[in-house]
Every structure is written in C-alpha cells, then in structure tokens.
C-alpha cells in the first residue's frame, strides 16, 4: 500500500462515497429485523416476524417465481439473439454495422419511462398487456443492448489471426466458432447473461406499465405493497434479494473471476 498522503485522502474519499451509496441498502438490514408494525428507524423492538410473514403472502411468492422464470427466459433468449448478432456485426462487419450497433443499443440511452410508454401503447394494441409474452418482449428490448455491447466487446478482443489459424488447420467455419471463438468469449457470455438476468429481475418501470392485477413481477408487487401498507415486510424481502443478487455475483466470480468478467 502506498503511504503518500494523496492516496490516503483518496482511500477516505472512496470509503465515504461507498458509505453514501450503500447506506440506504444497509439501513434495510436492521429494518428487516424490526418487531414494529410500521417501518421506522431505528426499530423499537427486534424480531423475525416479517421474514416469517413472507410465507403468508402467496402473491409475493408467485411474483418472485414469475420474476425468476421471466429473467431466466429473457437471459437465454437474449444470448441466443445477441451472440449471432454480435458475430455478424463484428466479424462480418456489413456496411453500416456501426450505425446498426448504435440503433440496437439506443434503448440504453433512452429514458425508460419513454420506452415504457411506447411499449404500453404497442402492447395494448397487440393484446399483450399483462401477459407473460408482453413482459418477456419488453424485458428483451431493455436487456438486449447490454448483452450485445458486452458480447461485441468480447468478440472484438479475439484476434482474427487465431480464427484464421484454426481454419488453415482444417476447421470449418462452424468448428472454428465452436472450438475457438466461443470458448474465448465465455467470460463475456457469463457477464452478459448475469447482467441480463439482473436487469430483468430488477426492472420496475417497464414492468409497472406492462403488468396487471393478475400478473406482476416481484419489484412491482413490492411497490404495490409499500403503496398500501408501510410494514417492514418489503425490507425483509429486500434483504433476501440482496443475498440472492450477491449469490449470483459470487457464482460468476467463482466461475470466472469478477475482474475478468466485468472489467474489460
């Protein structure tokens, strides 16, 4: 560790910013162990009652499993679309590839609320409102840009010479992809998959517009719960969500190394 004063100041600054960013999340943890009927900080008594009460909210549990299935399906289909699309854009580089890439990743820059409104209109016309298909398509639109960006970057770092070497050694284009290109972009695939999953699982604005009384995702269900009742139930669920997210991140980290996956 460097002993220069400037680096010590930087460490303090970094710690302070982290604390500032994480403080709201950290407050949720004691809140979830509250024994009170209403959310207040600090809690006047402690208990596990809100964790226990999750079981008595079947809508919450249904919403969790729906969110899980939705995020899973979105992730798989996302990768199935993004890998060939990225390959075409990066390797075949058709005329206008750069423009096409910008168009495809535009939803990243667009305000989500605008996107949500547009999708509401389209989905209403197509009769897809409050259907799993509608939510699936909406989530696909917002997660695809992430996957496309990450996989394109991963592909661009694979030297073409390596693929050419495989070809001269007798590998057909499909074999080159399977034996050389694909293994080399696996960190990118895992990162893209994890990010798609988390973005879909977390998505509130779009889901709020696209869900209905009989079908909603976990974040939407939590939002509705907070609107009507201010009890610490959502805090308990939030803690479980944080653990779940951490679990995914740790799995990714363990299988590939976080630095290699998220930092390019």
């Amino acid at each position: 560790m460097d002993e220069r004063p400037i680096s010590r100041i930087l460490i303090w600054l970094a710690s302070a910013s982290f604390l500032f960013l994480l403080a709201p999340v950290l407050i949720v943890i004691p809140l979830s162990f509250s024994g009170d009927v209403f959310m207040s900080f600090p809690p006047s008594s402690w208990s596990l009652r809100w964790y226990a009460s999750i079981g008595q909210h079947p809508k919450m549990i249904d919403a969790f499993f729906f969110s899980l299935k939705l995020a899973g399906a979105v992730t798989v289909v996302n990768l199935l679309i993004a890998v060939p699309a990225a390959y075409a854009l990066v390797r075949l580089a058709p005329p206008g590839a750069a423009t096409l890439m910008s168009v495809l990743t535009a939803p990243l820059l667009l305000p989500t609320i605008v996107l949500a409104l547009a999708m509401l209109i389209v989905a209403a016309r197509a009769g897809l409102l409050a259907t799993p298909q509608g939510l699936f398509l909406a989530h696909l639109v917002v997660t695809l840009p992430y996957a496309l960006r990450i996989i394109s970057t991963a592909l661009a770092t694979v030297p073409i010479a390596v693929e050419e070497a495989a070809a001269t050694l007798g590998a057909t284009p499909l074999t080159v992809f399977r034996r050389v290109t694909l293994p080399l972009i696996i960190p990118g695939l895992v990162a893209a998959g994890a990010l798609s999953f988390l973005v879909s699982f977390d998505e509130v604005v779009l889901s709020l517009f696209m869900s209905g009384p009989r079908l909603s995702t976990l974040p939407v269900e939590m939002y509705h719960h907070v609107e009507s009742r201010a009890d610490p139930l959502v805090a308990a669920i939030s803690v479980l969500l944080v653990l779940f997210t951490l679990f995914i991140v740790i799995v990714v980290d363990r299988s590939l190394g976080l630095a290699r996956t998220f930092v390019k």
Binding site: P159, A161, V162, E164, A165, A166, A167, T168, L169, G170, A171, T172, R179, V180, P183, L184
Partner: peptide, 28 residues
C-alpha cells in the same frame, strides 16, 4: 476453402489458441 487446403500457416502474432495447452494446440 482454407480448411481443405492443407497449408501450414505461421503468423507474426503466433496466433496460438490461448485457451488450449501446448499439446492441444499442436493436436488441433
């Protein structure tokens, strides 16, 4: 096509398969 030509090509950048062992590279 290149994969039916039986040419042995050595690149300036070596272009070895980074995810394979030396033996697997040569065996490819």
């Amino acid at each position: 096509p290149p994969y039916q030509r039986d040419m042995g090509l050595v690149f300036q950048s070596y272009a070895l398969f980074p995810h394979m062992s030396v033996a697997a590279n040569v065996a490819f």
